[in-house]
Design a protein around this nucleic acid. Structure first.
Lengths: 208, 208, 208, 208
DNA sequence: GATGAATGAGGTTTCATTCAT
DNA sequence: CATGAATGAAACCTCATTCAT
């Protein structure tokens, strides 16, 4: 049973789960959509392989279990989010600017990958215990990177100390968590606008 | 694997959930705990009746289906939340005070019924389509009541107009949604403290 | 999941797995025949329930798993054999007589329940590890009871000491083990005759 | 989970079964060990090729099917046993001596190839019907050669006629069959000692 | 000669629900 | 009111085998 290789060469991202693309990616795409729509438990392996246009045997050739598929999706999300945060937080700019950018960016990314996000927050508990711990640990690292930004601002006096930084982080992440419940791509706001508003709310709440 | 319930009010014997209370309530209590711990789909009817100390026949005597149980739990949560919000919002006090109180109160209530909340946010999609719509509608009413408070403040100039009130409501509700993911009763903060902090964050974000 | 109750009230042992008899017994009977004929692994749960005239759900209502069925068969065989050996060995007779009777009796019983015996020797390794240990332990007790008879004769001088008693027991049990491979009910010898011959061989081998 | 094979003769590197020997032999060796340990049905083709350090394609290049592998093992065992019996039985010596030697030799050989023997007796029923018949026929020839020795002794009066020769053969073979169930290489008896004891039991049982 | 991706049938087990008692 | 035996559909997963490369 071979793990999936992630090679970037998939061209212009066009075709859906139909043809062309390698089987593992088709399976991951199909699973992502279905898990987001129906939830992990409600999605049968049969549905996934039908959506991907392959047989069950093929799925189990690439992924050890249904759980593995879920874990693969988590790994992808975690990696993306951490990379983006590291990039933004590492910039050379005032801390208010870096926090605002990070908060807006994570919101935009969240919206742009709303399927991933829905799965992320709703299906964590369906992971096996070991993988659950691993994801929690990765997530913790992400949380702490974010918190460090807030604490930096609190130390230098540009952010209020009224609320513990930990709680502020959870406050903001809650709003991301919730995006999957209300944001509609065909609604009145673009991802960018939502991101700006959310970042603004965070920064305003932190004003001294 | 029957867990004991901890409410002192069962007469002279320290009897568990098996005694005293009527069967339907025992079933609802057992289902609530199990759904919150394991999720709706992962909880079997067999587990519920074992935890409640009755048989399957009894469950199907009182509830039409497993889905019905879930719906009953939702109805209870919705009713409680709406009642509390109506009480707080209807008070005679400045709008900042009423919003602060409402925001803190919903947070405290959320924490105190964390099992209900976990179920509420995680298992909505497991409801049948008709019941799903009904819950969404009720929830919408709740949202609008909350939003009205913010808009009132914006109209009267005590809250900033920088962010649409709808978005502010979702921002705050996101943090409640998220509470089930991080709040621990044995952690350092009481429900009251968390509620105050969250209300404070909201009000600070709304400062003009 | 209720364990099977063994009540003797099955009348004249007539009808096969068809009707009348309670479901668990029908399942056990069907499984015994099929396991003996085809082996445990080659027999599907589907075949068993079809032979017993019930559905899979019924099987899993009474037995926790396919493995459980096998274990139940083992328990029955072990109990029967131990009871018979205890009865024969506890008699008041010269040791040669008691050993001869025990050896002949176990052979006759083995032949009369040849299906049980085939399963017993061929499918031990298919039991789960814990049940495997339990069966081995029971079997060990049986072995030791038998060995005690031989040692008694060796001490009192009626049996030769040339061979360790342990080895003699395994020698004799080997022949029982093997019966399933060659004995045919429609062959020339009755179970009784085979039992007498095998007991005779054992006793002759033990002559001083 | 690749287990290491322990034969010293692999050149200057302490290399495992992967090196040196030709692929078909590596496959047969791996299959023999696994079939003996876990049974034929419980051993997957995947396990075999992993243990042999080759791929599935290679296996199906050399063997038509999993069943073929088993048949090949049987053919090897049958050939070896028949050759040894022919050699011993054809010697120029008194019949008691030839029977004793044959009985001891088959026991020693059985122990030395205990894996083969376990497979032989436990997995016969897993062969396809045609190959099953072929093996039975070969085995029959072996049985008859052995029986002929006993009958010769009975005719010439050195063995008792009390028991039919056929039954005596099955009695002895049963003990071989059983060896796989109790003999442990790290136990107190060498194969030679066990063989001598078993032959002795046989000869003593045949004393007139 | 050898690979390994892919198949497809079949494996065991779970589970919400019904119904005669 | 309440039981629990029984159903039947569907769940996840395994595996011997094939075939294009």
């Amino acid at each position: 049973m071979k793990r999936v290789e992630r090679n970037g060469r998939t061209g212009p991202y066009g075709a859906s789960a139909c043809a062309g693309r390698p089987v593992p990616q088709r399976l991951l795409a199909a699973a992502t959509r279905l898990f987001a729509d129906q939830g992990y438990d409600r999605t049968s392996v049969q549905e996934i392989v039908e959506a991907a246009g392959v047989t069950k045997g093929a799925l189990y050739h690439y992924f050890g279990s249904k759980d593995d598929l879920l874990h693969e999706i988590y790994a992808r999300v975690l990696r993306q989010q951490q990379e983006r945060l590291d990039a933004v937080a590492g910039r050379d700019a005032p801390v208010e600017q870096r926090l605002r950018d990070a908060a807006a960016d994570v919101a935009v990314t969240t919206i742009e990958n709303l399927d991933d996000t829905k799965i992320f927050f709703r299906s964590m508990h369906q992971l096996g215990p070991e993988q659950y711990r691993r994801v929690r640990a990765e997530r913790r690292r992400y949380h702490e990177r974010f918190r460090a930004l807030i604490e930096e601002g609190q130390r230098t006096g540009v952010f209020s100390r009224a609320t513990p930084a930990d709680l502020v982080v959870d406050y903001h992440f809650g709003s991301l968590h919730h995006l999957g419940s209300w944001y509609r791509p065909d609604g009145p706001m673009t991802p960018r606008e939502v991101g700006d508003h959310l970042a603004d709310l965070l920064l305003r709440a932190l004003r001294p």
